[in-house]
């Protein structure tokens, strides 16, 4: 790792101020960033540790909205009775990220700000149509994710919370990449705000996306058979050691089918 200055602000305002510095970089749980820095692929001059900010903590359910502080660790979300009661699929998803130790450090804010194409959380955020809250504004999920490792966050902007609408039903189905245990393909299916949404992670070269063909098929007939009948194109899907585009396209369908079955 290259060396850096380390600051740990206690408020969002102080964090935002610290991030104005040249080559300043925010770090939350560090479960991705530290590995990247060890490989010397990132060289921040100042590292701004967000884990000491109380206003970014906490989980609450109110008026059909589950509000998760950006600093909530995966284990907290997985273990939260409120989350489990309101959107069990979200708790499931958090409980299957990485391993127990990663879940004890990694945060939702860190995960979505990084927008790894194989990360789990983006699928829930997009699948539920959540709203990303930052120090400056609120961003709809559809606008937040901008492709591989890219979001609509501005320089120095900090995610402070994510607000999930409570879904009528939802299911998370993850097929693990055998080595990293990230999603080779993960599908989040939700019946929310009167529509069926199917968000897919791990599959596309553009990162998390909504599978329009599957959503259409399920909108008129919410059944495994409808999924079977829909076609998922492998164009633009990731090709790597662990899966060809065709294989990933197949998994998108299979995982969607399983989600639908779990919700029926």
């Amino acid at each position: 790792m290259y060396n850096f200055d380390y600051v740990k602000p206690a408020s969002v305002a102080d964090a935002v101020a610290a991030l104005q510095g040249e080559d300043a970089q925010a770090i939350a749980g560090g479960q991705t960033l530290i590995a990247t820095m060890k490989q010397r692929l990132a060289q921040p001059r100042t590292l701004v540790d967000l884990t000491g900010i109380t206003e970014m903590q906490g989980i609450s359910v109110d008026g059909g909205v589950v509000s998760v502080g950006a600093g909530a660790r995966h284990a907290e979300v997985a273990g939260s009775a409120e989350v489990r009661g309101a959107i069990p699929a979200l708790a499931d998803l958090a409980g299957k990220i990485g391993d127990p130790q990663v879940r004890n450090r990694g945060t939702i804010g860190g995960s979505i700000a990084n927008n790894d194409p194989s990360a789990c959380y983006p699928a829930a955020v997009l699948g539920l149509g959540a709203t990303v809250v930052t120090n400056a504004r609120e961003i709809a999920a559809a606008d937040f994710f901008q492709g591989l490792y890219t979001t609509s966050l501005n320089e120095g902007e900090v995610v402070t919370a994510v607000k999930f609408p409570v879904a009528a039903a939802a299911s998370w189905q993850k097929f693990e990449q055998p080595a990293s245990r990230f999603s080779l393909v993960g599908v989040f299916v939700a019946k929310v705000e009167g529509e069926v949404r199917v968000a897919v992670t791990g599959a596309s070269e553009e990162g998390v996306f909504r599978a329009a063909a599957l959503e259409q098929a399920l909108a008129s007939d919410f059944s495994a058979a409808a999924v079977e009948g829909a076609s998922v194109s492998s164009a633009g899907m990731i090709a790597d050691l662990h899966g060809t585009p065709d294989y990933r396209a197949n998994l998108v369908k299979v995982m969607t089918k399983r989600a639908v079955e779990a919700m029926s």
């Binding site: 055998p178 080595a179 990293s180 790597d240 050691l241 662990h242």
Partner: peptide
């Protein structure tokens, strides 16, 4: 699975891609 590509690079060069 230890995989070398045609250039002799090792794509399965870490636990992210070499499944234990």
């Amino acid at each position: 699975n230890c995989v070398y590509d045609e250039n002799g690079q090792l794509p399965s060069g870490s636990y992210m891609d070499y499944a234990m």
